[in-house]
């Protein structure tokens, strides 16, 4: 069943086309990766899917419901979570509080019982805390629960963003370059985390430059080039697609060359 459907999507900035007439469909429960050279429009696409940009043309539908023109918090309400390429951490809060913000939509709050700290509010808060702790443990961050967020390493913060997104209990999570800037060990951890997220029934939409990770974790891959679709298919199809190989070897040789896939076996978790 199709979860996310994008049709005829178009976006340009001051005459420069970022996304041109893009169509694709993400089936429910898969890990769907979007790859392409820098400037291919991947982050622009994410920003449109999450409501930060409004597309010039085209439609985005989630579970058959039209999403175009909704503000990000409304899109979040329909079960879309995302992480950011440039980390967006609430540095004024602890790790636990960051993830508690992710529980925002799940907490039932009554302002009066909160302000007076009535038992009802206390119970709800305790429940939310447990959700947040679960999300942190799921991402392997159990030891950082009470840390302030401004004292953590980049890798931990990346996983915290994922925990925060998972705390929303989304039906789809969009991850923007989760492995960028991570070392080998951390990348391996990220790979297993993405698998676990997918196994828990959440559809994963992934933008990533690390081809080893993409090829190991994805069910389907969409290749973007200059904002339009170059190819789409299973990892195998993509790896053998001559257009993709040409585009990658022709434009960007040092950035996750497809041919290195065999070297990725030691990452298997």
């Amino acid at each position: 069943m199709t979860l996310l459907k994008v049709e005829g999507l178009l976006k340009s900035f001051g005459g420069v086309t970022a996304i041109a007439d893009l169509d694709f469909e993400v089936p429910e429960g898969v890990v769907y990766s979007i790859i392409g050279p820098n400037g291919a429009g991947k982050t622009t696409l994410f920003n449109m899917l999450s409501g930060i940009y409004i597309p010039d043309e085209g439609s985005i539908s989630l579970n058959g419901k039209d999403m175009v023109g909704l503000s990000p918090h409304k899109i979040a309400r329909s079960g879309v979570a995302r992480t950011f390429q440039n980390l967006q951490i609430f540095f004024n809060m602890s790790v636990l509080e960051n993830v508690l913000v992710g529980c925002h939509l799940r907490i039932k709050e009554n302002l009066i019982s909160t302000a007076l700290r009535l038992p009802m509010a206390v119970r709800e808060e305790a429940k939310a805390k447990q959700w947040a702790i679960d999300a942190l443990n799921f991402c392997g961050l159990g030891e950082y629960i009470s840390s302030p967020s401004d004292a953590l390493s980049y890798g931990v913060l990346k996983r915290m963003e994922i925990a925060r997104a998972l705390a929303m209990k989304p039906s789809i999570i969009m991850m923007d370059e989760p492995a960028a800037g991570l070392n080998d060990t951390e990348t391996a951890e990220m790979l297993s985390l993405i698998r676990r997220i997918s196994e828990s029934g959440i559809t994963v939409l992934l933008v990533e430059h690390n081809m080893n990770l993409v090829m190991q974790v994805s069910d389907r891959v969409l290749v973007l080039d200059y904002g339009s679709r170059l190819a789409e298919g299973s990892t195998e199809e993509i790896q053998n697609n001559p257009q993709v190989i040409a585009a990658y070897l022709g434009t960007d040789t040092n950035d996750g060359v497809i041919g290195t896939k065999t070297g990725g076996s030691h990452y298997a978790v």
């Binding site: 999450s50 409501g51 930060i52 503000s71 990000p72 918090h73 979040a76 309400r77 979570a81 995302r82 950011f84 967006q88 951490i89 609430f90 540095f91 004024n92 809060m93 509080e97 508690l100 913000v101 992710g102 529980c103 925002h104 939509l105 907490i107 709050e109 302002l111 909160t114 509010a121 808060e125 939310a128 925060r164 997104a165 929303m168």
Partner: peptide, 21 residues
């Protein structure tokens, strides 16, 4: 509380706060 964290989230990152609903 939930509202207070929403407030503080706004200060930390407006985009991320929006994406949390």
């Amino acid at each position: 509380s939930r509202s207070g964290r929403a407030l503080r989230a706004l200060h930390g990152s407006e985009v991320a706060a929006e994406m949390m609903g």
